[in-house]
């Protein structure tokens, strides 16, 4: 006769399979913490070294420094992505899972549409010189993509999306504080989220 423990194990396995096959659970808190630190470092460099402040640059913009800021932004984005993939890879491997599985593909697909639309819009605005709108828009579209992705990973990502959208909207109103809102959203909020995730799921 089967032992009691077996039934509990059966149930646990069913639960884990249902979760594993519908949600990508290998996101790491460290990725959030690091992305936040990169973002804060980026804001510091942009503001102090490239004199980037979107309200002052929009009138009589210095295109040389703007190019520097764009390159900096691309570098930070790449660094954050590579870090996120690295930590997810490590976490998935620790669980004996593949990082490139149907769930992670679904997660990426759900993020791609809002991110790409936002990215293209930002490039177009950049080309046309609407510099002050870029920071709020990046927050809003990033938030939308997180909100969408929340369906295919832990629920907290949805909340993170809401916070970013909210900050983006506030930032669109208080446009002269764009850089501060951006630093809060991409920097501080990421770090808080990462620490929370780390203590909640990784210890």
């Amino acid at each position: 006769m089967k032992e009691n423990r077996d039934y509990i194990k059966d149930l646990a396995e069913i639960r884990s399979m249902m979760e594993r096959s519908s949600k990508f659970l290998s996101l790491s808190g460290w990725a959030g913490i690091m992305a936040g630190l990169y973002a804060l470092a980026g804001v510091y460099i942009a503001y102090n070294i490239f004199n980037f402040n979107p309200t002052s640059i929009s009138s009589g913009s210095n295109s040389f420094e703007l190019v520097n800021v764009v390159i900096l932004a691309i570098m930070i984005l790449t660094l954050a992505l590579v870090t996120a993939i690295f930590f997810s890879y490590k976490k998935a491997k620790g669980k004996g899972e593949d990082i490139w599985n149907p769930t992670s593909r679904r997660l990426l697909k759900s993020m791609l549409v809002p991110l790409l639309s936002g990215g293209i819009l930002i490039i177009l605005f950049l080309v046309n010189g609407f510099i002050e709108l870029i920071l709020p828009l990046s927050l809003i579209f990033y938030g939308l993509s997180l909100y969408n992705a929340g369906k295919f990973t832990i629920d907290e990502v949805k909340l993170l999306g809401f916070v970013q959208i909210g900050l983006g909207l506030l930032s669109s109103y208080f446009i002269e504080y764009g850089l501060i809102f951006w630093a809060i959203g991409f920097g501080v909020v990421h770090i808080i989220y990462g620490i929370y995730m780390h203590f909640r799921y990784e210890r």
Partner: peptide, 14 residues
């Protein structure tokens, strides 16, 4: 089999 059923319970189609 239990695994197959669990995965299909959580997804429309696989």
């Amino acid at each position: 089999r239990l695994g197959i059923m669990s995965a299909l319970a959580a997804n429309h189609k696989l």
